[in-house]
Nucleic acid binder design. Structure first.
Lengths: 196, 196
DNA sequence: AATCGGATCGGACGGACGTCCGAATTATAA
DNA sequence: TTATAATTCGGACGTCCGTCCGATCCGATT
């Protein structure tokens, strides 16, 4: 059941195991013992590296956030036109949902956790802000830097999150595709007519 | 700490206490003992009325779902034009967020719970389907009954959920208002140009 | 008044939880 | 090599959890 010994530092193994377990069972059902076992490490080591349960999951959140930002920026690298941007980000969520639904559920679980535990809120808030900014800054190249573009990006992200939630709840591939398909056109239309 | 004795059946008091506690601390942090204390009832009575923890929270989900459907239908009663519908539903979420954020967090928490526990999924799936249907059926009165209207309603709901999530995470009133404000126009624009 | 079934209670059970600590091991420096 | 610090380990502690059980209370039916 335990993982084979790795060369990288033990703290990384613990972090990865925490991500894996969290993506598999969710915060409410996971225990530090399971994570320690998955990492092939003594239970007490989790507290040695991350102080306590909260510290460990804060590290998980930081890791997830960093990864999402990196992946989204790579996805949008060099793109300028609004249409491609909306399409790419939408496709990114759709692909995540299709290939690694666990990671998407992990993200949603961390977001939910942030609703109840204030310690997680700044980090999760920053993640949403960074994602929105990444989308936004590539949107306003062709038009005046309008504040409404930032809000448009947030509504766009919100829609993708809300759709992902519904898609996981009702995993029929056909419906998923139809839902995601209409998102880029929807926001492209709004973006072209600028403010309200 | 315990509530005063009520006239209504004990099972209702337990259910209400469960909703209240769940809206206050979230599923991951709540215990049956707290709920029993809040309801002014012996711990064992929770199992007498609802079998087990899962049964109790399933009842909570049913209650929340029924309430949401009722409130949304009341909000949209008699309305026909798309603009009013989008505006009303958006205002409904915005009002919920402003006046009873606990209930909105309860809804999000139950949705998240449904991601991990399959027992909750059908009920939560039905809630989204019903909400979408309620919006959809008032949309297609003026045009041909198109499948895309159902999907539009789901994307609309998804956006509202995603925006609510971000709004709770970052409770600055100004930003909230700006976000919600642009939603109706966005979807009205898409609805008027029908399918993709 | 006697009976009976549902309702309610308090308390207990075993187990799992997060946390902590002393000892053993390994790495680093002198 | 020896001394010192950083890691790693196994095990324990006290607490809280969901569940269950026997006793008591109460209201309705004979």
């Amino acid at each position: 059941m335990t993982e084979r010994a790795e060369k990288r530092p033990q703290s990384d193994a613990i972090l990865e195991a925490a991500c894996h377990c969290l993506a598999q069972k969710g915060y409410a059902e996971i225990s530090l013992r399971e994570i320690a076992q998955k990492a092939g490490v003594a239970l007490s080591q989790l507290h040695y590296h991350y102080d306590n349960k909260q510290g460990l999951f804060l590290a998980v959140l930081r890791s997830v956030a960093e990864r999402y930002i990196t992946e989204i920026e790579a996805e949008l690298e060099g793109l300028k036109d609004s249409q491609s941007i909306f399409q790419r980000v939408t496709a990114f969520f759709q692909r995540k949902l299709d290939r690694e639904p666990g990671r998407l559920r992990l993200f949603l679980d961390l977001a939910n956790l942030s609703l109840w535990d204030e310690s997680f809120r700044p980090q999760m808030r920053a993640l949403f802000a960074d994602l929105a900014a990444t989308v936004e800054e590539r949107l306003l190249s062709e038009e005046d830097p309008d504040r409404s573009h930032h809000n448009l990006a947030r509504v766009f992200l919100g829609a993708l999150v809300g759709i992902s939630l519904q898609a996981i709840l009702d995993p029929q591939r056909v419906h998923q595709a139809e839902l995601f398909q209409m998102v880029p056109n929807l926001f492209l239309l709004a973006g072209s007519t600028s403010g309200s």
